[in-house]
Design a protein around this nucleic acid. Sequence first.
DNA 1: CTTACATTCTAACGATATTTAGAATGAAAG
DNA 2: CTTTCATTCTAAATATCGTTAGAATGTAAG
Lengths: 223, 223
Amino acid sequence: MNKRTIKNLLYEQVARVGSALSSPKRLELLELLAQGEKTVEALSQELSVDIKLASAHLKALKMARLVTSQRQGKYQVYRLSGHDVADLWVQLRQVAEEHVLELRLALNQMVTHPQQLAPMTRETLLAQARRGEVVVIDVRPRQEYDEAHLPFARSMPVAELKRRINELPKGKEIVAYCRGPFCLLSDEAMQILIAQGRRVRKLTDGVNEWRAAGLPLETSNTP
Amino acid sequence: MNKRTIKNLLYEQVARVGSALSSPKRLELLELLAQGEKTVEALSQELSVDIKLASAHLKALKMARLVTSQRQGKYQVYRLSGHDVADLWVQLRQVAEEHVLELRLALNQMVTHPQQLAPMTRETLLAQARRGEVVVIDVRPRQEYDEAHLPFARSMPVAELKRRINELPKGKEIVAYCRGPFCLLSDEAMQILIAQGRRVRKLTDGVNEWRAAGLPLETSNTP
DNA sequence: CTTACATTCTAACGATATTTAGAATGAAAG
DNA sequence: CTTTCATTCTAAATATCGTTAGAATGTAAG
C-alpha cells in the first residue's frame, strides 16, 4: 500500500462526512437535531417535505455517522452522534456567513426588526440576566428547552406566548432567542411582544452557538 | 417571500460550502492550502492529479468562497479565505476521526512506529520545548514553516534531513511534526532519524490543529 | 511579434445524488 | 390474528458531479 493509496483512503473517509453536509435539507435536519432528539415525522413536518424523503436524508446522515437512531415504541428517534457534530454545523454556518456574500445579504434582509443584539457580548448578556436586569426567554418548543437552554432563560414557546404573556414582568427588557440565526421563532415572538408594547430584543445565538463558544448551558431535570 | 422560501435560501447558501467539502481531492487541497499559499502546479503535483483537474477543483473551492486566487507573474497562487476555513477543515476531520470507524482503523494501521505522542498534552510539550528538554522539528518544506510554525520549532525539511542531521543535538529527544494526522512527512523523518540511532517521537498535530486548539504560533519574518 | 508556459474554458462521458411513487417491514392496538 | 401506522426499501426519472481531452486565454521571455 503506497502513500497515495493511503491518503486517498483517509480523505475519502472524511469526504463521506463532507458529503453529508452538501445538501440543504440535510443541514436543516442537523440544525433541528442539534436542538434535541426528534422523530422522522416531526423532522419531515418541520422541513415541509415528504416523510420518505426525510427518511432517505436521515439514512444518509446515519451512513456518514453524524446521527444515530433508536426505536422508541412506534417511532424511530434520531439524534446527533455527539456535540462535536453540532459544533461542526455551527462552524460550517459561520464560515458561510463570513465568506458567502449572498448569505449575508439574505440574513440582513431577514431582519424585520432593527432591535438586534449585535452590540452586546454574550458575557454581558449573561451578567445582566444573572442580575435580573433582563428576562431571557427561550421560545422553542418545551422539549428542546428541556434538553438544553441558556442559563437564566425561562421556557416560553411561541405557541404559548400570547396566553402566557402576563407571566413576563412588565417593566423589564425581554431578550428572546430560539434555534440560531436561521430560526424565525424569535422573530415571531418579537412581533407578538412588540404588539403588546413590550421592550424586546433578539439574541441570534441558539444553544449550539452558545456551547460552541464555550459558554455554559443548563438542562431541565426530567422527572 | 414565505418562511419556507427564506429557509431554503439560507440553507442552500451553506450547502454551497458543504458541497465543497464533499470531495476527497478538494479536502486534500484544503489541507495543503491550510499550510500556506500554493500554485496550481504545486498542488496538482502533491495530489498526483492532472493540473486540469486540480484547476477544476480549485475553481469549485473558489465558488464556495473557501479559497481566493491571485496572479503572481506566470503563476496563479491560491490561498484559503481565512483561518476559519482551516478550522473548519480541522473540525470536519476530527468529527470523522471520532465517529467514522473505518477512518480510525486506517489511521491506526498507518502508524508504523509505536512512538506516538498520544500521552503527552500539547501544553506539556510546549513547556518541555521552552526548557530545551526536547528539540521540536518542523519537517515540512521551508516555505510552509515560514508561514507559520510551532513555537520553539526549527525548520528541518525531510528533503534536507539526511545531510543536515548533525545540526540536531545528539543527546536530546527529537519531536517531529508535519501537516497533521494525515501527513506522512514526519513518518519519513522518523525512519531516517531512527536509522541514525536518534530518540524521536511524532506529534500528530500540525499548525492548524495547534491553532484550532487556541495555542500560539510563530511566523518567520520574510525579509 | 513570436514562442513557451501555466492555467482555464468547453464539451463529453460515465458515475453519483435527489426526488417521487409503490411495495415491504415491523411494532402496536383492537 | 388482523389492522393500523411509522418508517424503510426498491425502482425509476432527472439532475448534478468528477474526470478527461482539446481548444483557448493570458503572461513572460526571447
